[in-house]
Design a protein around this nucleic acid. Structure first.
Lengths: 143, 143
DNA sequence: GTTCCCCTACTCGGATACACTTTGTCCGAGTATGATCGG
DNA sequence: CCGATCATACTCGGACAAAGTGTATCCGAGTAGGGGAAC
């Protein structure tokens, strides 16, 4: 299981913004510094998150980004699927004549795996990342 | 969840060879035809499987490949990890100063997901693919 | 008939070129805020 | 004192280059079996 760099940074950025959600709009530059990444890279991630509704953006001179949701109700799954696209099963082969049934079995296994991934990612929230809850994070870390 | 083309073809090849395991060594060309793939591509996959011990290879004039194991004891997990490498959690970010704890939480979630993937893949065997068993395949297809 | 040698058919393993995905960077355009200027 | 205009600081969104990973193809080398020649 791998998280792309982009979705990892997206999760971290959301956690960062959620911890400063009372301070109004935070500029992309600040988020970039937190992520130790170029401003442009952070910008692209923040824009995507805003387009997907996970962040609010404000144009203009004192603009920036703000996390306005409930950190407990935004899961890693939302973040990853917003950035990398949906997690679905994917068999990269053109079904030949003899192998149809076999491919179906493989497909089924992948479907199960994909469902499990989604489930696992859905169990971790932005609040867990930000450490603003005692619900899951320490439990997870203890395992 | 995605299977690479190579590991998919590897699984299909193993299923094919397991269904003909009594016929001695099968040439790579025949496997390639079954997969509807170039001989060279099939060859590389077969070679890797042989190196990993999932197939036996025979040099020389009437050489080829043979599946000598128990189709019920070789799972998709073995195949995928033989071809694509081990399935492990993977966070592609250099841990910064402030984000250590967050990354640890992410890592934990990925670990869980990876374990689930391995579990799911381990439940499907070559025999399930080849249809030589009633144990799992139809069950899987029914879901 | 037996032994030796060569030819053929196949795998082995590395090397290389190609394609796709992910990542990093840049630039023009648009928008809200605050300052400045004119009435 | 008030309103219009302008400069500034930021986001938006696309476009593009660079890097990494997965895929396809090629080629020389090595090995086992069979056929033929020599004895």
């Amino acid at each position: 299981m791998k998280l792309t760099k982009a979705s990892t940074q997206a999760a971290l950025a959301l956690a960062y913004l959620s911890s400063r959600k009372d301070e109004g709009f935070i500029q992309a530059r600040n988020v970039a510094e937190f992520l130790d990444a170029p401003t442009d890279s952070a910008l692209k991630i923040l824009q995507t998150l805003a387009r997907r509704g996970l962040l609010q953006s404000q144009l203009g001179r004192s603009g920036g980004y703000r996390f306005s949701g409930d950190p407990d109700r935004v899961s890693l799954l939302h973040v990853v699927e917003a950035i990398d696209g949906p997690i679905v099963s994917d068999i990269r082969i053109s079904t030949g004549p003899q192998v149809d049934r076999m491919v179906t079995v493989l497909q089924s296994a992948c479907d199960h795996a994909a469902a499990h991934i989604r489930e696992d990612l859905n169990h971790v929230t932005i609040a867990d990342l930000a450490g603003k809850t005692t619900r899951n994070a320490d439990l997870l870390l203890a395992v």
